[in-house]
Design a protein around this nucleic acid. Structure first.
Lengths: 208, 208
DNA sequence: CATCCGGCTACACAGCCGTATAGTACGCTA
DNA sequence: TAGCGTACTATACGGCTGTGTAGCCGGATG
């Protein structure tokens, strides 16, 4: 998402698509609504992107490239050398992330590569931070999934916190909550208990 | 979700709806497909539930009641007296949760009460555990959102981990990863740095 | 000036969606 | 046995969807 209102029609369509896809999900967002939001005819959408699936792919590519760009910028500027975490929580990246998650939910197979890539980056980050756990990959994968979940639930979070978490004041509150979630952990004695119960639950689960 | 294949037609429709809604999302899942999965005519769906929205509401009610039932059972049986966390991760509750999240994404306003309730329970749990943070509510809300996100990303997690995380072996791996996520926190010195950067990011965000 | 090509629109089409209606089969009660 | 309500099916209808096609317009090119 770049700037105001004098962009290429193609870019306006893409931006409108990302917005509507993120809000409603891929399926329920219609080409006609996207065209209207972009101020063009529905035929132009097809002209530029071929089909709805083509539009979705173009949005995928753009969103991923844009996120990478944002992360790189933060990484080069920042006093905090961290690509995976801070890149993800940067305000301008929120809508892009919401879109990507929606796209992911709609056709998992088409975006599993993206998810895998994020998990890889997460693993490298864990290594760089010197964090070592028993199952590094599962740890990283769950972190990525949880992070995605947070951004997807912005509507509910806004309602629960009484402020719009997509705007600076509420956003700060949400992000600080996330930081606290990872800095005020379960106590060590609780961890053992949780693990024991997990084992029991899994063991008693009927086969299918 | 109770048992095999000799249930009331109404129950079979409801179960099929929860399954398909959870898999595809509310919008893309059609009444006709739900009816076929339940082995009935599409007219019968309308006969029992009035409309698609009525079916969704019935599924919401059932899923929430069923989750409460599961939590209560675990709470009464369990050696681990924890409603919010363990209730949520119990295997039989996974699909119900996936459905509820889908429903939530499709019409946030209709399910915000449910989310608020989960946040409340989370806050009480935090109090009971003696965990105190600066912004208790934000902490609890983010935890709930993250937990939901994890269950929603089961397809991606399965691909990333190479096992089906909805079945016992992979499920155990995922849940252990989640436990590790909350027991191997950021180091304290990192927390200060993250907070500083958060403040900077928020400050430089352009108003809208 | 003639040509052409890409951005762009208007309109038509088949298919599927949720919904509505009419009708059938069956078990209960009087 | 007659009557009736309920579970259930078959079929139809209007609306909206993604897609396809024909054509307009303006600027670059020769």
């Amino acid at each position: 998402m770049s700037s105001p209102e004098d962009l290429t029609a193609r870019a306006r369509i893409r931006d409108a698509a990302i917005t509507l896809f993120a809000e409603r999900g891929i399926g329920p967002a219609t080409i006609r609504d996207i065209a209207q939001a972009a101020g063009v005819s529905s035929g132009l959408v097809r002209h530029h992107f071929g089909s709805k699936e083509g539009l979705r792919r173009a949005c995928d590519d753009y969103a991923m490239a844009e996120l990478t760009r944002i992360r790189t910028r933060i990484f080069n500027e920042g006093e905090f050398r961290d690509q995976s975490f801070l890149g993800a929580i940067h305000p301008s990246a929120m809508q892009l992330q919401r879109y990507l998650i929606r796209s992911t939910l709609d056709s998992p197979e088409a975006t599993s590569a993206m998810f895998a890539r994020m998990v890889e980056v997460g693993e490298e980050w864990l290594d760089g931070q010197g964090i070592r756990v028993e199952d590094q990959r599962a740890y990283a994968a769950v972190l990525v999934a949880m992070q995605m979940g947070m951004f997807l639930m912005t509507d509910q979070l806004s309602a629960a916190l009484g402020t719009d978490v997509t705007k600076p004041p509420g956003q700060l509150r949400m992000l600080r909550g996330a930081v606290e979630a990872f800095t005020h952990p379960l106590r060590a004695d609780q961890e053992a208990a949780v693990r024991a119960v997990l084992d029991k639950l899994i063991a008693e689960t009927p086969e299918e």
